[in-house]
Design a protein around this nucleic acid. Structure first.
Length: 207
DNA sequence: AAGGCGATTGCCT
DNA sequence: GGCAATCGCCTTT
């Protein structure tokens, strides 16, 4: 589809009990931070999201509650982490009312906190300054990459935000240019314009 | 009980 | 741009 471009003021707080289609663009500019067992903080600004509803063929919740999708039907503010393609995990923020089965997939972050720890998790050990500059964008420009960089694993599935090691903080940037377009990597409901990203941000996985 | 495939990534050409 | 890697979940026998 032709992307729609608009200027959206980012709210200071986001009401996660609103629908995924409402919350997904509002999460842009918010900060996601993870604190590991050693107290190290890694995180960044959310720059790309996708909404998944329950009456949505592309959504894991489409066929109802199951052992895997149960967190999606829980209360808002939990994380739904799932394993995909045999080697990656992706993280969603559960939104809507309990039982709705809605979530927002976090597809990309602009890294801001703990770059060296993220680099270690993504590329293994220390890398040279030259490599860092080249791979900087590769740290968190995808849903699987950002989970690896922040150390999010299946152990975080169904965890509650802001009550433990996972933090979701309001954005500080008052406004940004938001692009609304179609979702990526799915084969069903590809026409739904339920992906949002910050225009011009280099960590967006696909422009 | 078995088979197909996915909200991806990285490496190869 | 194409494709392998890799495994849990869901659908179908």
């Amino acid at each position: 589809m032709t992307p729609k471009i608009g200027i959206t003021a980012m709210p200071k707080t986001t009401d996660l009990t609103r629908s995924a289609v409402t919350v997904a663009p509002q999460l842009l500019g918010c900060r996601l931070v993870v604190i590991d067992a050693q107290g190290n903080r890694t995180g960044g600004i959310i720059v790309e999201t996708e909404a998944y509803m329950s009456s949505d063929e592309a959504s894991h919740s489409f066929r109802g509650i199951s052992k895997r999708t149960a967190p999606m039907f829980g209360p808002a503010g939990h994380l739904y982490v799932y394993f995909i393609y045999g080697m990656h995990v992706c993280a969603n923020i559960v939104v809507g009312r309990e039982g709705d089965g809605q979530a927002v997939l976090i597809r990309a972050l602009e890294p801001t906190i703990g770059l060296e720890h993220m680099s270690k998790r993504r590329f293994g050990g220390l890398i040279t300054d030259e490599e860092v500059s080249k791979k900087y964008v590769q740290l968190t420009n995808g849903p699987g990459k950002l989970c690896q960089a922040l150390g999010i694993t299946l152990a975080d599935n169904n965890a509650v935000l802001n009550r433990g090691r996972l933090l979701l903080q309001p954005g500080k940037s008052p406004e940004a240019i938001i692009v609304q377009t179609t979702r990526i990597g799915i084969t069903k409901a590809i026409e739904k314009p339920w992906r949002w990203y910050i225009q011009g941000n280099q960590w967006v996985s696909k422009k």
